[in-house]
């Protein structure tokens, strides 16, 4: 099977810091996928093109609430519905590594591919007027002029909690495949058969079970310190007043 590069996002450690959001913007706006325009940057309702967003959901009711931070970029679907619908061929999935890309030179900005993406992962750049989306930083990961440790997506490099793993999900031995297998990695909206290459790892919970005897051990220091003060030896006692 050929390569399928993807991101695996570990919701168990994502703290919702948005580092992946702005590092992505920063890398890409001056890169091959740029620019990424911003409207009203200093006025009401600033809005711009981003390839990656971090959202927040609340699950459950107080006090049993989970707050879930949920980063989302293009999932590089194995069966990407956004690709076949594109009339120009601007949207394509690379055979060699499964990255789904848009060729800006071909794109006519008809937005049809975005209608065909159930995940809301595509954005038209309001000024360049072409469709944009996460490129998996294809201009970093193969760039031989970068040190090999840096040939990773910007968001992966940035993420302070390493909640973003990057690799080949078709290689059963890759870190991403292992993470998916071992930690219950799952795909979004599996109902559409898009087979997103990106996966998410769920929250996992560590608990401690305590046994009663753990609170009553022989080495309990209270036994040493003597909870009760020793009475004064000189204080009256039975010894002073009775004989047997």
């Amino acid at each position: 099977m050929s390569k399928q590069l993807a991101l695996v996002i570990d919701l168990n450690v994502c703290v919702g810091c948005h580092a992946c959001v702005t590092s992505c913007k920063e890398w890409n706006t001056s890169g091959a996928a740029g620019y990424m325009s911003d409207d009203n940057p200093y006025a009401r309702d600033p809005t711009g093109t981003f390839f990656n967003r971090v959202q927040t959901f609340e699950v459950g009711e107080y006090p049993n609430t989970q707050t879930v931070h949920f980063p989302k970029s293009c999932l590089h679907c194995e069966d990407p519905p956004c690709v076949p619908v594109c009339p120009t061929g601007a949207s394509y999935k690379r055979a060699e590594d499964g990255i789904v890309l848009v060729d800006y030179d071909k794109c006519i900005g008809c937005k049809y591919c975005s209608w065909a993406c159930p995940y809301g992962a595509r954005e038209v750049d309001e000024h360049q007027k072409v469709m944009k989306k996460c490129t998996l930083c294809v201009d970093r990961i193969y760039d031989e002029s970068l040190p090999s440790a840096d040939r990773k997506p910007a968001c992966v490099m940035a993420c302070p909690t390493s909640a973003r793993l990057f690799g080949d999900v078709h290689d059963a031995e890759s870190a991403v495949s292992r993470a998916i297998r071992d930690s219950g990695g799952y795909a979004l909206m599996p109902e559409w058969g898009t087979h997103p290459a990106n996966h998410y790892l769920p929250r996992r919970k560590t608990e401690i079970t305590l046994h009663r005897d753990e609170l009553e051990r022989v080495d309990n220091p209270l036994k040493i310190d003597g909870k009760l003060p020793k009475p004064d030896l000189r204080a009256p006692s039975l010894d002073d007043s009775t004989s047997w």
Binding site: P46, T47, Q55, F57, E58, V59, G60, S114, R122
Partner: peptide, 26 residues
């Protein structure tokens, strides 16, 4: 199914930006 969490009560608090985006307009 959208976020892959099985719980009957899920509510979004933040979509990640405040001034709208292509996704909120289109």
């Amino acid at each position: 199914t959208a976020i892959g969490v099985k719980h009957p009560r899920i509510a979004q608090k933040s979509e990640g930006f405040m001034g709208g985006s292509f996704n909120t307009r289109e």
